[in-house]
Design a protein around this nucleic acid. Structure first.
Lengths: 234, 234
DNA sequence: GAGTGGTCTAGACCACAAA
DNA sequence: TTGTGGTCTAGACCACTCC
């Protein structure tokens, strides 16, 4: 008997257990998880079995391992390298431009289902604009599920862009993107300081953690000044 | 002494060796790779070591494993699930629309470096249009590196879209995308049957195999009829 | 039925980095 | 120096599946 678990490989059970601790936040980034020999004792198994589980977690990027030091919960589940849509503030600064941000509107609504297919009872809705060198760079509409991220209620989104705040605070396990092109209408043209009808790139992103909706964001960029890039292997 | 290799884990060497066979095409899709016990003999190591390597290849999707049957080179290194830009023909048909395709121009040029940052001495250049239900769906400009894919010289791209052909024929190891929005100029508007100035989505993709450039493609879609989607986990 | 992969054990030695 | 992870061994039993 490996455990009470039904026909599930032990190393898989270890992976599931540790993932739960990490993704739920019980073990925050930087936390030193038990040594292999401790887990060996806890699960009554050989070190190879524990090692297999930890190696898998390391390969998945959930933990980092250092000889003599131990294994640690990896730093922010940073934005995936797959689809390179980093935090706009970081991205703009990396290009050497001055980053600016202005919160346009903030409100909290109670609604069972956001009009984006995400489920949650209470939503924080933000409208904001990002600037690069004082020129509008992106118009952002953001929904944050306060059921999943209650701390967002007290965050100062007049100073901190919600994307930056969320990336630093909230681990996510799944993200879905939709990308399309649209012609700027009068209002959007004014916001982005482009001519009416200019082609814009619209990116929508829904993010989940363990099946719970975290956030929805719609960002619209002037088409001539922004390119999305994605670089990956099969 | 595990081997003459210099400070490289044996299971890593096995992975590298097998990857080479698979990605180079020496072992085509469907090929049954040696059994674990055969590799054990070949590398003079324990089965666990071979198993570790094969498990990693399976996790990476390069091979599939079946009890009692053996391990097989996985079917086409199909388009990654990360950024869902499948073969347009497949995608259109999955939506229930009739797929059409027309080759506009075909030519071969000798040029050291394609104007897209890719290196190769001889390029096959194709211009084509994709149709869904007889309406233009995408304008495509395609460059194929004949050094890497000599068979493309004889392929009948008047019948088979180059994207479909390449996906079925050529394994790739890296792809880079750039996505932007643009207003249709007169020529593009005519090709896509949209009004001049309509917002369009432009996708550029460069693909490599083991460091060698395979293809560059630029596809332009009417912005109101196409959305790119990407769904992934960290 | 026979042979494959899936999993696990109870050791071992080594490299490396932290103390 | 010390203890961690990295790797490897030579077995073992089992489940599944193809013949």
């Amino acid at each position: 008997m490996t455990d009470h678990a039904a026909a599930k490989p032990l190393h898989q059970k270890i992976i599931t257990d540790l993932e739960g601790k990490i993704l739920s936040g019980v073990w925050p980034p930087g936390y030193r998880i038990p040594f292999e020999h401790e887990l060996t004792a806890q699960y009554r198994c050989a070190r190879m079995t524990v090692n297999k589980a930890l190696s898998a977690l390391a390969a998945a990027g959930l933990i980092t391992r250092r000889r003599r030091a131990g294994s640690f919960v990896a730093q922010p589940p940073t934005q995936s390298a797959m689809l390179h849509i980093p935090d706009l503030a970081t991205e703009i600064r990396e290009k050497g431009a001055a980053y600016g941000y202005r919160l346009i509107k903030r409100r909290i609504v109670g609604i069972e289902e956001a009009p984006h297919g995400l489920v949650g009872t209470t939503w924080l809705i933000l409208d904001a604009v990002h600037f690069a060198n004082n020129r509008p760079f992106a118009a952002e509409a953001r929904w944050i599920n306060l059921d999943a991220v209650p701390d967002a209620t007290n965050a100062d989104f007049a100073q901190t862009p919600p994307g930056s705040w969320l990336l630093a605070q909230v681990p996510w396990t799944r993200a879905a993107h939709e990308i399309r092109a649209l012609n700027a209408n009068a209002a959007l043209a004014k916001t982005l300081a482009v001519t009416k009808g200019a082609a814009c790139l619209m990116v929508e992103r829904r993010t989940w953690r363990m099946g719970d909706a975290i956030t929805y964001v719609r960002q619209i960029f002037p088409g001539d000044s922004y390119r999305l890039t994605a670089d990956f292997s099969p």
